[in-house]
Design a protein around this nucleic acid. Structure first.
Lengths: 249, 249
DNA sequence: TCAAAATCAATCAAAACCATTCATAACTGT
DNA sequence: ACAGTTATGAATGGTTTTGATTGATTTTGA
């Protein structure tokens, strides 16, 4: 396999996985570890991805939402633990909604081979859902290219056709006073509507989201249960408002 | 084999493979390694391809990489020519539908920076539409992972919200008797409905699709105009049924 | 915190690949 | 036919890429 072809394959794999280990890239390309490392060096130099210890991850571009950078690189293992617990709540035969966002994305590998139906507005989830053979419906509507989410009035309308056993939402801010918040008004509208259509409602939020407020509130705390790795002092105050599952990494 | 003929063959091979090893080009052309190297030097000087260690690859303008899909498609240059003409029909301000499929995919680069709205059921189109900054709506519905298309009853219903100035459809078979055909019944339903909602209707079909019949008919010949590179004897019979634009590569 | 495990950067020899040269073969125009 | 030009293929020695190894560094888990 020639160098550019191999590097393309690496890029594609990393995009699909959001973050790939060296070992996986070795398997995918058939090249040696040394070669992969050299490729990653070059690709990083070109600004096409970002190296992290153990592999490579997507490079967050300036146009992405401010928190996306930290999301991808910083709290990966925490998010995985959160996502794993969330996925364990999904029963055979369930119809669930998975919100766009990096924490919810991490759920997908843990849903492998479950006999469920997933509805999502996160376009970047689709490849992974495909890889894991999960029956998927995508929400229709305007594509917000920056975040890879589907939004807009059409999406809201489309959404109302569905009813969910469970929904798993992301949030950029969680506080006692303002509940769950997110920067984008259109995405907030989607989240709001989704909560209305779901029997069991979960918000996945790592510790960095607590005591932060983003622009748009999409729900009160009591409307959904929280899955988080946050275990600060104030967690007991939150428990008075809603159910909280604290996972440990 | 004459030099220009050989160089054309090299170009064609590289385009088809996306990247070719010297060894492969030696096999394909029957020339010696030295000759291939000299050809590659010249072709690179003309800017027609890019030399890489071990062979040659397409000249990618500053990482125009995103889809590996191009690599596997047959008749790539023919499809590009068809797509280029199709894209030239799109006017500023148009709302158009682009069908899932490899030929229609090729239209996207040619739509760059046009002020239009695109609706599509082809999930693999989305990345490219994003790259080229085109305002995009995605159809909602069941994701058919195999082909990366959105299908199903929900999609049909979702589709009816839209009206299109133009639609550009793919087809797996085109015959005088059975019109346009495609293997998948659900995709056929989408195509049918889309044609009903569009003012101007085009089917993009390379020469390999002619005189072939697939499982599901989705329209009569007269319902859409054809854009193709096919210029066989029977083309005149087709002209009696509908408008046909024959492009040359 | 420390020790074990995993990952990394640096190095080096082998393999693959490349540019150059040169002799031969095939064209070209006279 | 003949001299001059061009294209070709083989041989050469130099260069780049590659994969394994090593010891340093980072992460992980207790």
């Amino acid at each position: 396999m020639l160098t550019p072809e191999r590097q393309q394959l690496i890029l594609k794999t990393v995009k699909n996985d959001h973050t790939s280990k060296i070992k996986r890239l070795v398997e995918v390309t058939g090249a040696s570890e040394s070669t992969i490392r050299r490729d990653l060096d070059q690709l990083e130099e070109q600004g096409l991805l970002r190296r992290v210890h153990g592999g490579a991850s997507l490079r967050s571009s300036a146009s992405e939402e401010p928190t996306m950078r930290e999301k991808v690189t910083k709290f990966h293992s925490e998010k995985q633990a959160i996502a794993q617990f969330a996925a364990s709540l999904v029963q055979e035969g369930d119809c669930i909604f998975i919100d766009a966002g990096s924490t919810t994305f991490e759920m997908i590998p843990f849903l492998k081979e479950k006999n469920i139906i997933v509805v999502t507005n996160g376009l970047s989830h689709l490849d992974a859902l495909n890889t894991h053979q999960i029956k998927t419906y995508v929400l229709g509507g305007l594509v917000k290219h920056q975040t890879g989410a589907v939004v807009g009035a059409g999406a809201i309308q489309n959404l109302q056709q569905y009813r969910f056993d469970q929904c798993f939402m992301g949030a950029n801010g969680v506080t006692l006073q303002d509940g769950y918040t997110t920067p984008d008004p259109e995405e907030a509208a989607i989240k709001q509507m989704t909560l209305n259509l779901s029997k069991n409602r979960y918000v996945l939020a790592d510790h960095s989201k607590f005591e932060k407020v983003a622009f748009m509130k999409f729900s009160n705390l009591s409307e959904a249960e929280i899955i988080t790795d946050y275990n600060g002092a104030s967690i007991e105050d939150y428990r008075k408002k809603t159910n909280i599952k604290v996972v440990t990494t």
